[in-house]
Each structure stands twice: as structure tokens, then as C-alpha cells.
Design a protein around this nucleic acid. Structure first.
Lengths: 334, 334
DNA sequence: GTGCGTCGTCGAAGCGATTCGACGACGCAC
DNA sequence: GTGCGTCGTCGAATCGCTTCGACGACGCAC
């Protein structure tokens, strides 16, 4: 493995010059730079990450804490993680994967050993135990989701409140007078996970503003639970004409259940989903939906993190706009 | 941030002694050890990862290359990744996340900069461009999946050939005389991705051995494609009494389509799936299935990697046994 | 009592980069 | 012609740890 000294010798310069060519932190004559770059090329030189981290006090690695919990739609997480890795690489950083089950100790470890320069935390809860740790670690961090007290933290997420409201607005406009939200599993609400709670609030609030009746139905993420909820809905609210679904795995089963109960969508019942576009497009019928822009959130989150690492100021809260796309699953109330 | 020197001073020993206490590479009196450990505790000492990597030539980080491709069931990947991270941590290693789109260059980079000690590659194809790179990088590696030429490599995977065969065996035993495999999307076969091909081969081969008719139907991973395939099956093979599904996202839609076509499962049609247990258990009816033991594969893969890092010999090929669990979706042929 | 082996600890030499101060060369102004 | 500022490069110190050889103390055998 070639070292910086080898490159320097080969190019006839000092090691520090090679370093400056690479970092651009001092000006170098074009002629010298070319010579150095050529030597790097020839020798296949790649700087040793550990040595670099030691000397510069920067590892160029960021940690990503991914949730393992139940009741969370996995593909969205992956999409998100992928986007984070890709964007981080564009900024010359790598991503270290941390799982929830190492918990707070994991954060302390990667920070304490200088393994990472910054962290990104997904699936933040209202009262998240990681938040105080992040505060006293004084490690640059970006949270995906909002804790109850976001003071001094950098947070980003889809504007779920607006998402919930947008669904209701759309349905109200179509003349629906009673709507139901089929939401996340009960334990997700119990944890106070932000996205579920905020969607619910946006939904409820918008319904009140429009003066239409609304109910919320937590639902486990499996087909059987979906069928139960569908049956409950039809029985308890005979006047129901529209459903909002914020729970990816049950979308298909819910559609099937309504169909089997003889309800045509959107003829008898309109449905709006909050889910990735891909899912909405492939459903039958294609679903009117507010998309979950995982890719965009991931990209922006990394941007924020890089800005913090660069000492640039960043907004504390970033909300990604909720956009509703009408498709085939909603129609005017009969 | 406390350094080893601070600990040494606090404990009244030399820095090297502290290092030996931590690594256990030389014997230390119990009294001294206790003193050092106490100082570490008091000062909250955590060794600097970069310095450690530089001096020891070991980063204690392994890279995990995850696939981003279409036609792959995402939750399984996550389950797998999770298991890898957890197991790696048990062995005092961290996991760096690499995505496919950096491609071979990513491998060269993390290896060349000594960022990682070893790599784990998922979703290996028959003729995988990463394989030659791994060979000449001489980096300890474990592949999840088998390339065409596995000579000298360490590979592990579910025994998909046996999985495909197990499904047919089970159905043959129940007296079925014509079976169909609903498989991965066409592009997955086109890429020569090992698991799809091997399942198909196991399936076909077992059918021939039992002397029963068999056909294979690639299927895109969305509900519409599932419906098309279901219709094709019923039309082309009126004598069909059993289906094997190896494509998670279409399981639900396929069940729905058969139901709507008036076929009772398992009354008119038996179905066996190759999918995670969780999915099979929650389907309606619960599916007889060969499970995909992602957690186990991840754990074993890390074990293999650690063994290689420790210089211990490991088998070149590890096949995880395919286990079929009978549930409610299969019955004797009418 | 001398000699030798073991055991526990120390000290110092790296590991491979970055970074800071210094310094020569050169251009420009006076 | 002298002086000064700028630019490009160099050399050496430094980052925090691991590891190897050395060395004193101690126990045991002869």
C-alpha cells in the first residue's frame, strides 16, 4: 500500500505538499499539482483513513441510527437509508450503521471513540431518550422526526400534520361528510412516535375545521387486523364515505376487504393513502395519495448535517411539504 | 477527551500497560488490572478509533454492501442487515453501509483506505463483477449468495435449490400432478441472480423426479402483474392444482386473485410460499412455507467473517437448511 | 549461592497522515 | 538597489494508540 511519503518521493516534493494538493488548503502551482496527481495515479495511492482521522480529527464518517421497531414500514426506511448513503458519498462521507438495540450506548461509543463526526437519528419519538444524550455529546446531529422539545436541535421530516390535513381537505372538497383514519398500530401511538401523532392531529383538526365527522382507528400491520378494522368501520359508521390510510402494509388487505364487502372504490367509498408513490400507483385502483418523499428527506437531512459540520448555520426545523396526488381512488360523495 | 496517557498517569502505570489491560495480549497482575480499569471508569476513557486503527492496522469495521435493485423484497434485506449489525457488535465490530451504486469503486475505496477490515456482499449474481475485485483485493469477504465460480470464496445462503425441491416434494406427497412456480421478476432471472435461479432449478428438478408437470412464471413485484399471472395460470393450465410462490410482494394479490376467480385455497388450489415466516403466518389462509431465515444467515455470515479475520479456517460454502412448515394453504389434491 | 526462566511492567519506536511556522524566490514600489 | 509582501514549498511536530524488546524481581533447581 503506497503511503504519502512514497507519492512525495515519486513526485519529487515533500509529503506536506502532497497533502495540500489533496486537501486544497494551500495554493500549489499547477505544474506541481499535476506532477503530484500523476504520481498518485501511478502508485494508486489512497490515504489511510485511520491516519487521516488521527491527524485531522475528522473521520469523514457519519452514523445512521435506524429503527428496528414493529409497526414501521420497512421499504421506506431502506429508501431513506439509501438516499442518505448516496448523498453522504457525494459529500465524501461514509455511513456507519447503528441499530436501535445498542441504544444510547451506541451513540456514546461512536462519539467517544471519534469513530464518527456526526449522527443522524431516524424514527424520533416525542420523548426520546437519545435526545438528551445528543445534547450533551455536543455531536452534530440531525433528527428525522420531531421530539417534544426540539429546542436547539436540527430536525427534519415530512410535514405530517399537513399531510393528514391535505387528505381531509381533498375529501371535504369532494363533499364527504364523514371520514375515518386507519392509522399505525396502537403501540406506535403509545410510544408517542411523532409521525403517527402528527398525522392524526392534522387529520382531526382539518375535519373539525371543515365541520365533518371523523374517527381514528389504529391498526396492526397485518391482513387480519386490516379486515377487522374494515368490518368495524362499516358496522360502526354506516354513513362513512371516505377513508384515509396511513399504514402501508394494510392498504392492500383493506382494499380487498372493502371489495369483498361489496363496496366499490371509489363508487361507494373513497380512499386516500399516505404512502410512497410507488405503492399508490400500483394499487388497484391506483390510490389518491400524499407521498412519503423518503429520498428527498434523506438528501436534505444529509445536506443539513454537512452544513453543520462545515460550521454553517442551519434552520432548526425543516418540514418537507406534503403533496397530494389525485388518482383513481377518490370521487365525489354519492 | 481522556487519552491513554491520562489513564496511565491516573493509575500510576505506563501507557503500554493500559493497552495490555484492554487487549489482554500480555498478562497483567490482577491488582494492576483493577487499578487500571478503575481509572478508565473514572475518566470515562474511550480509545480513539483512528489512532487504534493506525497503530494496530485494524479498524474493527466491516463493510456491508446492500443491493438496491428492483425485484428484491426489502424487509428481508433489512432483517438481514439488522442481524449483521447486531452480530458484528457482539464481536466488537461496527458496520459501514455501502450501496450498490458506488459499485466496485466503493469496495476498492474502503479497502484501499483501510477503512474496513472485511466486507460482506449481499445479492450476489452468477457472474458478479465484484467477485474478481474481491479476489485481487485479498480482503476477507463473505458473500451472501453464490456466484458461478465460487472457487476460493466464502459463500453462504439459504439452500434455495432444496427450498424449491421441498415445496414440490410436499405437493407431490399430497398427490398433486401439476404445479406452477410464480417466481421473481424477469430481470432478476436475466441478471442470473443466484437465489431465483437455484429455486427454479430445485423446483424443476424435483418435479421431474416425481414425474409431475411443472411450469415457471416470472412475475413483476406488483399487484397488477400478480393478477395477470393468476389469470394466465388458470387459463393455460386447467389441470393445475398447486402453486409455489417465490416472490413476497405478490403473495397477497395472488391469493386475492384466486379467491375472486372462485378458487378456494386450499380446497381447489394449494399454495406454498418461500418467504419469511411472519408473512406466511399472517396471510389468509396462513401459508405452508419454506422460511427465509434472514436472521440466521446474517448471524452465520458474520461468524464466518470473524473466523476469517481471526485466521481460522472456514468452509467455502455454507448452505442453510431449507425447512418447510405446513400450514393452512395446502391440502391433498382433489 | 549462583544461574536461569518466567512474569509483569516499562519505554520508545513506529503507524501515516495533517498542519503550522519558516523560508527562499520573485515581483513590485520607491 | 533596497525593502517588503506574496506565493509555493518544505520540515518537523503532532495526533493517540499498539507493540516489541528490555529489564528488574522473583522463584526454583542444582
Amino acid at each position: 500500500m503506497a503511503k504519502i511519503e512514497d507519492v512525495a518521493r515519486h513526485a519529487g516534493v515533500a509529503p506536506s505538499t502532497v497533502s495540500y494538493v489533496l486537501s486544497g488548503k494551500r495554493s500549489i502551482t499547477d505544474r506541481t499539482r499535476q506532477r503530484v496527481l500523476h504520481s498518485i495515479e501511478v502508485l494508486g495511492y489512497q490515504p489511510h483513513a485511520g491516519a487521516r482521522a488521527l491527524a485531522s480529527n475528522r473521520s469523514n464518517v457519519v452514523a445512521l441510527v435506524v429503527p428496528l421497531r414493529t409497526g414501521i414500514h420497512v421499504p421506506v426506511i431502506m429508501q431513506f437509508a439509501t438516499s442518505v448513503v448516496t448523498t453522504a458519498r457525494e459529500h465524501d462521507h461514509d455511513v456507519l450503521l447503528l441499530t436501535q438495540n445498542e441504544g444510547v450506548a451506541g451513540l456514546r461509543r461512536v462519539a467517544g471513540t471519534s469513530l464518527v463526526d456526526a449522527v443522524m437519528v431516524m424514527d424520533v419519538e416525542l420523548r426520546d431518550e437519545r435526545v438528551p444524550v445528543l445534547r450533551d455529546l455536543r455531536l452534530p446531529a440531525v433528527l428525522i422526526g420531531f421530539p417534544a422539545d426540539a429546542e436547539g436541535l436540527t430536525c427534519i421530516d415530512l410535514d405530517f400534520t399537513a399531510a393528514g390535513a391535505a387528505c381531509v381537505d381533498h375529501l371535504a372538497e369532494l363533499g364527504h361528510r364523514r371520514v375515518a383514519l386507519v392509522g399505525s398500530p396502537p403501540e406506535v401511538y403509545a410510544r408517542g412516535t411523532g409521525f403517527a401523532t402528527r398525522t392524526r392531529n392534522g387529520f382531526t383538526e382539518a375535519a373539525r375545521a371543515h365541520g365533518i365527522a371523523a374517527s381514528v382507528h389504529p391498526c396492526d400491520a397485518n391482513p387480519a387486523a386490516a379486515r377487522r378494522v374494515a368490518a368495524d368501520l362499516l358496522r360502526e359508521h354506516p354513513d362513512l364515505t371516505a377513508v384515509v390510510v396511513h399504514n402501508e402494509p394494510v392498504i392492500g388487505p383493506l382494499l380487498a376487504a372493502f371489495r369483498e364487502a361489496g363496496r366499490d372504490i371509489p363508487g361507494d367509498l373513497s380512499m386516500v393513502a399516505i404512502c410512497p408513490d410507488e405503492l399508490a400507483e400500483h394499487a388497484m385502483p391506483a390510490l389518491t395519495s400524499v407521498s412519503i418523499p423518503a429520498e428527498e428527506v434523506g438528501r436534505e437531512a444529509v445536506r443539513l448535517l454537512m452544513a453543520k459540520l462545515g460550521g454553517r448555520p442551519v434552520p432548526e426545523a425543516t418540514l418537507i411539504e406534503a403533496r397530494l396526488t389525485p388518482r383513481a381512488s377518490t370521487a365525489p360523495a354519492g
